[in-house]
Nucleic acid binder design. Structure first.
Lengths: 127, 127
DNA sequence: TATTCATATGATTACTTATTCATATGATAA
DNA sequence: TTATCATATGAATAAGTAATCATATGAATA
């Protein structure tokens, strides 16, 4: 810790107590990774639209294509990511495959984020 | 709609009612974009760590560097993104600049996502 | 059992985003 | 009023991700 490259400001960074406080409360490394992976799934507009569509209805791939105006390959690739992360489940019915959400937190997370957006819009609209 | 390239499965996709139902409830286009932008901010591990650190304490840039083991440029660049999206605010005190969160939803969103992660872990640990 | 339909997958390309390095800015202190 | 410290910023490169296109799979039907 002493001969390492100095990162802290000045000789005696006045905030070491803060740093230690934060450090003790922080999620651990692998949780950060899982969190960021989860948010990554929501961060692509196409995937987000797919997720939101599935919030309300079980849908087959072609329904999603039609609904979102996307081609089949695009939708399937994104569904693959969602599948791999266990965010959606699916069932086969004849030739079609129906996707639905496999998580109860998703709706809450999106709702929170939407609340944030709407509040921002209000704030800006009112100034 | 008739001479467009056909996206819907078969001649008579049986789920047009579903599609219309979903369509009527969906967030609008610009909201999707804002949502995905918001999630994009959380989707980078470095940024996420910065955000989580600021959940608990107002911190200066060099505190963040020290805490997260990152170089100053990395942290400043990411803070710039957070600033641009109005997710953090900052104040100058002498040579140092202190950052803090400027949003009440952030903690909730991360907490939800963390709940999801933990539940997944439990599920897998128990099988 | 050959054909069609719905979906999945692999490989390539195009795009986006983060990291790095060098330098600029703005405040303080010598 | 120059030197130093904390931070910001720009440009270049590197890394990661999505779109596209071609093809594969697996079920149903003729």
């Amino acid at each position: 810790m002493e001969d390492e490259e100095k990162l802290v400001c000045a000789e005696n960074c006045p905030h070491l107590n803060k740093i230690n406080n934060v450090k003790s409360l922080e999620p651990k490394a692998d949780e950060y990774q899982k969190l960021s992976n989860m948010f990554k799934l929501f961060s692509d507009e196409t995937r987000l639209k797919i997720i939101c569509s599935l919030l309300k209805e079980e849908l087959c791939v072609c329904d999603l294509c039609e609904l979102l105006g996307l081609n089949q390959s695009q939708v399937s690739h994104q569904l693959q990511l969602l599948r791999n992360s266990k965010l959606v489940k699916f069932r086969r019915e004849g030739k079609q495959i129906f996707y639905s959400l496999d998580d109860e937190h998703v709706e809450l997370i999106i709702q929170m984020a939407l609340n944030h957006i709407l509040e921002e819009e209000e704030k800006n609209g009112m100034l």
